[in-house]
């Protein structure tokens, strides 16, 4: 029985940890999508730029010597935010603002930008992956003594969870307590009416896009703790991130949080085979066990999660928390 609870706890921790990576990457996308109805296929590349910024900050701080080398992560977060936000701002002013009201064209344009950014990194930096080493205080993990199975909660994962919480809280207060946040929410609800009331929608768009991109940069900084960074890093996250937004519902922060956590936990539980392990003592469940074992790998878990998402959308096509409105459109 203790084993069972421990298994479940490990599952929950790992699931939340996957979920927080998803959430931190989806946060920026969700805001931008909610406001402008624009899907940014270059979002993953903005994350990649954030990750590379972290790499460069690390190199600079390592050159400075030891006390500095330990805190580079802290400095890398704002740097990654700024770099990604700047690129996002250029992208919005240069391309996307000409394409409002044409979401499919925007999608294609951002894909073009994504290709260009990836190739740019490949030619200017290197096509090979670079490694970001976590500072000493983020290596290892917290040991929890529990009976016969010792559990280790990696510090890096915990750091990502904390960073995600900080970002969510920050975004929440920005949107709900600042005057620009008020304007953003107003434009999200009704663009025409906001414009009539004198809100500079173009500025709001640019600002939101920059902030969304900046959040992608922070996400990129976070993913450096999980593995090496390459020009294609962003591509690994982008589709999962979209799924978070689709399931969460457009323009709803809380929906994104719930959907990211649920997707994270379900992915982990299926991918690690926890279900199969948990059910295996029961004889009558053998076919179910075989079924879950078939999906017990991270790539097959995605197959299953996608099927679940499609099933979920049959019940709630506009996500967990749909926007209320009186149009015939969804």
């Amino acid at each position: 029985m203790v084993d069972f609870i421990v298994q479940l706890l490990i599952g929950a921790f790992n699931g939340i940890s996957i979920g927080s990576v998803l959430l931190i990457s989806a946060l920026g996308l969700a805001i931008v999508f909610g406001l402008m109805g624009v899907i940014n296929l270059a979002h993953g590349e903005l994350m990649m730029l954030g990750a590379y910024t972290t790499f460069f900050v690390q190199n600079i701080f390592n050159a400075l010597g030891d006390p500095w080398a330990q805190v580079y992560t802290i400095a890398a977060i704002p740097a990654a935010f700024l770099v990604a936000a700047l690129v996002g701002l250029i992208l919005e002013r240069g391309v996307i603002r000409f394409l409002y009201g044409r979401p499919l064209e925007t999608l294609l344009a951002t894909w073009g930008v994504s290709l260009i950014l990836r190739q740019l990194v490949r030619t200017t930096i290197s096509a090979r992956n670079v490694d970001v080493t976590a500072p000493a205080w983020l290596r290892g993990g917290l040991q929890i003594p529990t009976g016969n199975i010792p559990i280790q909660l990696p510090y890096a994962r915990m750091f990502i969870i904390v960073l995600t919480i900080a970002c969510v809280v920050g975004v929440y207060f920005f949107l709900n307590a600042s005057s620009w946040g008020l304007r953003i929410r107003s434009v999200t609800q009704n663009r025409e009416m906001s414009a009539c009331l004198g809100i500079p929608t173009a500025t709001v768009d640019a600002l939101t896009f920059a902030i969304g991109s900046g959040l992608a940069g922070i996400a990129g900084c976070a993913i450096t703790l999980l593995g090496s960074v390459g020009p294609n890093t962003g591509q690994n996250y982008i589709i999962d991130t979209f799924m978070v937004v689709v399931v969460g519902g457009v323009g709803n922060l809380f929906g994104s949080i719930v959907s990211a956590m649920v997707i994270g936990i379900v992915t982990y539980l299926i991918g690690s085979g926890t279900f199969a392990v948990l059910l295996s003592p029961m004889d009558s469940m053998q076919p179910v066990v075989a079924f879950f074992e078939f999906f017990a790998s991270s790539s097959m878990a995605k197959v299953m999660v996608f099927a679940l998402i499609i099933g979920f959308l049959q019940i709630k096509p506009a996500g967990i928390f749909p926007q209320k409105g009186r149009t015939a459109e969804l």
Partner: peptide
């Protein structure tokens, strides 16, 4: 890839 990106 640059070419393709600009084409988009």
């Amino acid at each position: 890839l640059f070419f393709q990106g600009f084409l988009f």
